[in-house]
Design a binder for these strands. Structure first.
Length: 407
DNA sequence: TCTGGGGTCCTAGGACCC
DNA sequence: TCTGGGGTCCTAGGACCC
């Protein structure tokens, strides 16, 4: 059996851990730049506050109804997430961390005679040791475990198991759009083709499914029938890409400010890259002008590839700013920018070139970046940073108006 | 004035090879 | 009326996930 453990209203639950006075009152958490709503407490849900709603549009209503508003603090939530995952790892032979607030757990039949009881026990332990309420769904495949966890959320016990006996009923009462892996696009098509429920989907000709929804659709179909096609894997896969981007706090028109904003993104990406012990052989930079949902908007971007992987802040920043100089058009009103690193190599098995034309400074830059990482790790991030960013006015800094006031 | 940020995987089609 | 067969690699775009 496979269990899916899902943290309830995760970001709100984290805020309540930091500020117990938020317990029992309606709470929402906002995305970066206080842009839109990304987590709601149950009380806020019942007030019909939609997920993803732009904050500026609903601010009046939130104020009127006395909803507590929090600017999101993702790094803090990540720490809580790590704690939850550490607790979960104690109760399974294989834990797959699927997202910041979800994990799949393997429940081998020979070890856990009663999966429901085991899940209920785990749920209690996470609450006790990490302070986060969770829901757990148990079934024979990941796709079914996802469905089970949705039912668990609505159940008294917080745990739900899909057994062979109740499988058919569950599929019949599940709309296609609620299936994990079926998004809005596919759901619309399926409904038009007379496939309104998970049961209909499971009964369709596999060749038809394959043709319309690729191998992924086929896997989903198998999983709905109870056959596991996506095993729980605790192997930590190395990332395919690392992206750091931000919508800026205000419009930027000068090249210098744009360069500063992009440099901040590069430094963050570089730190993540080195933490994964990787080298990047590709880097891309993009900047957006205008607003996405307001007036006209567009992106300027470009990639660069490197002969050999790089990882130092110096080399990454040089490459990014060189791109920026090429794509930047004066006179535009820029609102967002970011950087993506990709095509990674393993830093611990660096491929040497036949003719060694490595920049002589490279080793020095890399040692320097590692030292900066270490200092910032010990003293808190931003203990050391480039002097170019030591400016008073940072118009690119995202807004965060709803942080708790500190004593 | 205004709507986040970060990922993965799959396929089709083009370019190229013998 | 009529022009083979088999392969690789890369990219852009779509769809999906949290």
């Amino acid at each position: 059996m496979i269990a899916l453990c899902d943290c309830n209203n995760f970001f709100v639950s984290c805020e309540r851990l930091f500020r117990p006075e938020l317990q029992g009152v309606p709470v929402v958490v906002l995305s970066s730049n206080d842009g839109c709503i990304i987590s709601r407490s149950n009380e806020a849900r019942t007030m019909q506050i939609p997920m993803g709603e732009p904050y500026f549009r609903i601010k009046g209503l939130l104020d009127a109804k006395g909803v507590a508003v929090c600017s999101g603090n993702l790094s803090a939530y990540r720490e809580i997430s790590d704690k939850v995952m550490r607790v979960l790892s104690k109760y399974t032979d294989s834990l797959e961390v699927y997202s910041i607030d979800e994990a799949f757990l393997n429940f081998p039949a020979e070890v856990f005679a009663d999966p429901f009881e085991h899940a209920a026990f785990i749920r209690k332990q996470v609450g006790r040791l990490a302070g986060i309420p969770v829901s757990i769904g148990v079934a024979s495949s990941k796709t079914l475990a996802k469905l089970a966890s949705e039912r668990a959320k609505k159940s008294e016990s917080g745990v739900f198991e899909i057994s062979a006996v109740c499988l058919r009923d569950i599929l019949m009462s599940t709309p296609v759009e609620d299936i994990w892996g079926i998004g809005r696009r596919s759901a619309d098509l399926l409904r038009r083709w007379g496939v309104p429920t998970a049961a209909h989907f499971a009964d369709k000709d596999p060749l038809w499914i394959r043709k319309k929804f690729t191998v992924r659709g086929l896997m989903t179909q198998c999983e709905l029938k109870g056959q596991s096609c996506m095993p729980v894997s605790s192997d930590e896969k190395r990332p395919q890409s690392i992206q750091v981007s931000r919508t800026w706090g205000s419009v930027i028109e000068s090249f210098d400010n744009t360069a500063c904003a992009i440099t901040e993104n590069v430094l963050k990406a570089g730190m993540l890259l080195r933490r994964e012990k990787l080298l990047a052989t590709a880097l891309s930079v993009f900047i957006r002008y205008g607003y996405r949902h307001y007036g006209s908007c567009g992106y300027l971007s470009r990639d660069v590839r490197f002969e050999e992987g790089i990882m130092s802040d110096r080399e990454l920043t040089d490459a990014a700013l060189e791109i920026l100089r090429k794509i930047f058009i004066p006179g535009y009103r820029y609102t967002k920018g970011g950087v993506t690193l990709s095509f990674f190599e393993d830093a611990s098995f660096r491929q040497k070139k036949l003719f060694d034309d490595v920049p002589p400074e490279r080793a020095k830059y890399e040692k320097f970046s590692s030292a900066v990482d270490e200092i910032n790790r010990r003293l808190g991030r931003r203990a050391v940073f480039p002097a170019s960013l030591a400016v008073k006015d940072k118009p690119w800094k995202p807004h965060r108006e709803h942080l708790p006031s500190r004593p």
